[in-house]
Design a protein around this nucleic acid. Structure first.
Length: 493
RNA sequence: GGGCCGCUAGCUCAACUGGCAGAGCAGCUGACUCUUAAUCAGCAGGUUACAGGUUCGAUUCCUGUGCGGCUCACCA
């Protein structure tokens, strides 16, 4: 009848034929009594009884096997896959023809029928009646190999989710992680809040921002690079325990570990310091792992990682000493440190400031080795403009980052609450900005004013949900845990 | 931004040293009332990412462009 080779054309033609015959291919509703999973469970529960359960359920046709006047097919909904069995002598000649000629793989079907077990043991619906719920115009990816083309998987994630089961599991795991985190924090009296994404001054991290413009206000606004300064305003306002899970935006390079928009969890707790934040991190990660994975051990890229507290704690000073034999305290300025690096012919990029150079040494020689969960403590002051000084070490601040599976996962400090010190730090950053550091923290007078009203001693913490999801799902690329990762827009359709 | 690799039918992949662009699944026609990667017989399906160049002849070699992957740089 139809001799066109294009599958979309063929399906469009079927659609027209159906409409001409009075069949609406996109009806408004179909009421189900059971999901696929519920139907399967209902049958198991009823086994041994006389009457098999009758169910109305619906799903997408994922496989069809026609054998003359009887057909098997599998339908899939969000809960499971279930087999259906259509017989001409059960549904009638006309209806059976409609099934064979009107339906294609991928179409949605609603069925009603009784459950039984086939000879091979599969619980199946013997269909008494059925109807089309939605016609598909494009063929689905292939049933054995699924969809492997990475670009198509990201650009058309719906196809990836549809045919690649592990992908579905990954994103379900991610959502469960976030749910478990909320529960953990809520139970401890933390209040979930929402702060602005559009900010007149960006801050709270070192990164270049996205800029946008509000037409009516005729004002440039920045997409936030972190939530920090607004959450700390809430601490000033007397909300002693707050957290936010939200999207941050950084106008930087894209890699397997960086997406321009990513999700961060930030937590602030009054009357706490960075030691308390370490306990919070290890307890939270452990609880989430137990809840979501059912264990505190996970495998990441071939490494076994144990999240059971307590985690290892090491100062940045000790970690670098161990890895490079450099005692950074003996080289307290950038020139002598450069000199020492040269003497040892270490392969690290030269950085303009002491703190950045220390960090570079750390990134190069220490971080990749941090497979088991590790807190690295006491960072250089000049790269930490929002953290409180260490009382006994004026070049350092009470700050830690933590690492799992070699990934940098999060950052925390005893928050700087001295408004005069904060102003000095911003002035330092201003100099770095003038020296061409595009990621230096901008001066924020409104933040200093808030601090002058008084902020209690506070511990603050931020960590990347995406990186955590990578670890929990053993994904090597951040794009595997972001439903729609940022890609270059493709010209045309 | 640099380097390396990839782009062939709707999907997954072949095509030797430059010599007729092919298979499986999906599709179409037919057979088949317990199949499950159903089976059997037949048919159709291509701007080889795009634009140039070399050549009698280019999927193949060269140049450029686009998109993607990995990686380096960058990124607390």
């Amino acid at each position: 009848m139809t001799d066109t080779s294009d599958q979309r054309e063929q399906r469009l033609q079927k659609l027209t034929t159906l409409r001409a015959a009075g069949v609406e291919p996109y009806p408004a509703r179909f009421s189900c009594t059971h999901s696929a999973a519920e139907a399967l469970a209902a049958f198991v529960a009823s086994e041994g009884q006389e009457e098999p359960p009758v169910v109305r359920t619906a799903g997408r046709l994922m496989a069809i096997r026609v054998m003359g006047r009887a057909s098997f097919a599998h339908i899939m909904d969000g809960t499971s896959r279930i087999q259906i069995y259509l017989r001409q002598d059960e549904v009638g000649k006309e209806a059976y023809r409609f099934f064979r000629e009107g339906f294609d793989l991928g179409d949605f079907i609603g069925v009603e029928g009784s459950l039984f077990r086939t000879r091979t043991g599969e619980v199946t619906i013997l269909v008494q009646s059925f109807e089309m719920l939605a016609k598909t115009l494009r063929p689905l990816p292939e049933k054995w190999h699924g969809l492997t083309d990475v670009e198509t998987r990201y650009r058309q994630r719906y196809l990836d989710l549809l045919v690649n089961e592990p992908v579905r599991r990954t994103f379900i795991t991610r959502t469960r992680m976030v749910t478990a985190m909320r529960r953990f924090l809520d139970e401890r009296g933390f209040l979930e809040v929402e702060t602005p994404v559009l900010q007149p001054v960006y801050g709270g991290a070192a990164a270049r921002p996205f800029v946008t413009h509000h037409n009516v206000l005729d004002a440039d606004l920045y997409l936030r690079i972190s939530d920090e300064l607004y959450l700390k305003r809430l601490i000033i306002g007397g909300l002693d325990r707050v957290y936010e899970i939200g999207r941050d935006f950084r106008n930087e390079g894209i890699s397997t570990k960086h997406n321009p928009e990513f999700t961060q969890m930030e937590v602030y707790q009054a009357y706490a310091d960075y030691n308390d934040m370490m306990c919070l991190v290890e307890e939270l990660w452990h609880a989430v792992a137990e809840q979501v994975l059912g264990t505190s051990r996970l495998t990441y890229q071939g490494h076994e990682v144990n999240l059971m507290p307590p985690w290892r704690r090491v100062t940045m000073h000790a970690a670098i000493l161990e890895a490079t034999a450099i005692d950074i305290e003996e080289y307290p300025d950038v020139n002598s440190l450069h000199q020492r690096i040269k003497e040892l012919s270490l392969e690290v990029n030269a950085k303009p400031a002491w703190g950045k150079q220390v960090e570079e040494l750390f990134d190069e020689y220490v971080q990749p080795k941090l497979i088991q969960p590790t807190f690295v403590l006491d960072y250089p002051l000049d790269i930490s403009p929002l953290a409180k000084k260490k009382p006994d070490a004026p070049r350092l601040v009470e700050r830690f980052e933590f690492f799992v599976g070699g990934l940098e996962c999060g950052n925390a400090f005893s928050e700087l609450n001295d408004p005069l010190d904060q102003r000095e730090r911003f002035e330092m950053q201003r100099k770095q900005l003038q020296d061409g550091d595009e990621e230096a923290h901008p001066m924020d007078e409104d933040w200093i004013r808030a601090l002058e009203y008084g902020m209690p001693p506070t511990g603050g913490l931020g960590f990347g949900i995406d990186r955590m999801a990578m670890l929990f799902t053993d994904s090597s690329s951040i794009r595997e845990v972001i439903l729609f990762p940022t890609l270059r827009p493709k010209p045309g359709r």
